[in-house]
Design a protein around this nucleic acid. Structure first.
Lengths: 334, 334
DNA sequence: CTGAAAGCGCTTACAG
DNA sequence: CTGAAAGCGCTTACAG
């Protein structure tokens, strides 16, 4: 049971003071080329890794940031984590992954506890934590840097990476209109999710742009879950005349719509087109594969970490969506 | 921009030495009830949280463990994380989530770097990191405690939480036989995944138990991906006579099988039954919803963390699977 | 370009 | 039951 080497052992072997080893580790100037090489050689040979705890305690920074999330979708959480973690790691930071409960009374004090305990240098907030205004206020007051991914509220202030949900929903609606649909239904997400209102707005705007009257009968509220997609679809298919296309606010609800259509033996996409949003892994696992909007989740998280830690001075970045046409949509029936 | 209070400020206000505050924080004995109450009151009022870095540096333990994973399935990773994190947190430990590359040459040195840097008290390995024997050896040599989730190799030694894949695959095969199937195909996962061999073995044993001859023609190798499920299914449906049921080694491949069946307009489950394994979120999003085996992923991770940190002295725990019958399987066609 | 001193906020080992 | 001293492994601020 060997234990970790320390900076002093390295310095002894390299024949320098431990302060010089510290300089090499931190890439400071004012170290002669030869000294630097010698130290680096010893560091590599001993497989020396500086103690994170000691650096944090002694220094002004901890090189630690936390990603806060409260999202029930494994797919979304996984990709946000992956994108943020890779970028943080590349920039020399450790990322702490912290699930929270946005509705809990003690959200703010729980997060502040983490901030203190870990001496955090900053935070990355993913939706819906982005909408916890009391938390944003507390972080502002504390002077702690943070960046938000796809924020709804206070969009224009502070650091944020985002995608244009309105434009993306317009693109999908346009696709459906282009292949001949006029009676296009929309299943929206819960009103508490800002993205779901933006998507509804895009659907509305695009209909208007084509001179198609907005029909409130064709909009049903779901909650982004598969089951709510099935219920909304049953309601929509009872309208007369029946819609020829259903645009669901996310892929889970679109999968629910597909299931109902299969159950009722409706020909897809011959009699009914169904579209989703997100391009989650579900989109290609269902039949027919979903026409959807690819949301660059991973890239959004990557960009957020870069804004927080990259030191470029930029504060906001906007990434593009992509319309992906698969087999769940087709020409409107005659 | 206020900053964190320290143990000394707490002690000053409470009118005791900072050593006494330390005793209260660590729940040590030999503190009078009254002193304890007074200190706790100040701690709560200042919202004081001890510095993790300082505790780690001064103490013998860091209260930090890492979860190592290298799994392409968001669903699996999410549930392993959730289960492990909740238990660690309840036991007063922080869990570092660390993606690794099991095939990389520097796997061992990367993990050891993390161990040193973070002063880890232990590790939780999820598959397929569980099979990296060089890593297990290095941890053993270092005397570092670790626990494995669903290990394949060295099953009987060390701490581990597991499920009986052989028995689970037998249960599924039995279900198919019970509803009248005799020509049952199996899509296995890659041979590098030990679980996939166990599932094949269970399929084989159960056929034998019913006096059904094992037919190598009815076993095709996939790699746990949706696409490999589609390819395997096309190959299987070309056999004559056609199998009446397909048992896929996981839900992703089963979803691929469903897609091919839909494409070929095969009646499900009238002409063909399809079964999966895992009960991932996919299982209920496809049509028809999948008959599958529920693998208690979250509970396995929870149990692993408990074995590692709970101090019960137990070393192994085995959890039960559950057969879940949905609409993708039914009676064999006449 | 290099080093000796002080200190970060705690726990440990030792006294009383 | 309570406290004063030493030290964990580094960075910071100061000298030379």
């Amino acid at each position: 049971m060997s234990s970790r080497p320390t900076i002093k052992e390295v310095s002894k072997i390299a024949g320098v003071s431990f302060k010089t080893v510290s300089r090499v580790l931190n890439n400071e100037k004012h170290v002669s080329e030869e000294t630097r090489r010698r130290v680096e050689e010893v560091v590599a040979r001993l497989n020396f890794r500086p103690s994170h705890a000691a650096r944090t305690l002694a220094g002004r920074r901890s090189f630690q940031v936390a990603l806060l999330y409260d999202n029930p979708s494994p797919y979304y959480v996984y990709h946000v984590q992956t994108g943020a973690q890779q970028r943080c790691s590349a920039l020399g930071y450790r990322l702490l992954l912290q699930p929270v409960d946005v509705l809990a009374d003690d959200l703010v004090s729980n997060v502040m506890a983490l901030v203190d305990e870990a001496h955090l240098d900053g935070l990355i907030l993913s939706p819906p934590v982005t909408e916890a205004l009391a938390l944003l206020d507390a972080l502002d007051q504390r002077g702690l840097p943070y960046v938000r991914i796809a924020p709804g509220a206070r969009k224009d202030s502070g650091m944020a990476s985002m995608m244009d949900d309105v434009a993306a929903a317009r693109a999908m609606t346009r696709h459906l209109v282009d292949v001949g649909h006029r009676r296009i239904a929309f299943i929206r997400g819960a009103k508490t999710h800002i993205s779901s209102s933006d998507r509804l707005e895009g659907y509305r705007q695009e209909l208007e742009a084509h001179g198609i009257a907005f029909d409130p009968e064709l909009v049903v509220e779901g909650d982004y879950s598969f089951r709510s997609g099935t219920e909304a679809t049953r309601a929509l298919l009872a309208r007369t005349p029946r819609p020829t296309a259903i645009f669901a606010g996310n892929d889970d609800m679109a999968a629910g719509a597909l299931a109902v259509a299969h159950e009722l033996d409706i020909d897809l996409p011959g009699e009914l087109s169904i579209a989703g949003f997100d391009d989650s892994d579900l989109a290609q696992a269902v039949w027919p594969p979903l026409t959807t909007i690819r949301q660059p989740v991973r890239e959004l998280a990557d960009a957020a970490a870069e804004l927080l830690l990259g030191g470029s001075g930029e504060t906001q970045i906007s990434l593009d969506h992509e319309l992906i046409v698969r087999k769940s949509t087709g020409p409107a029936p005659k």
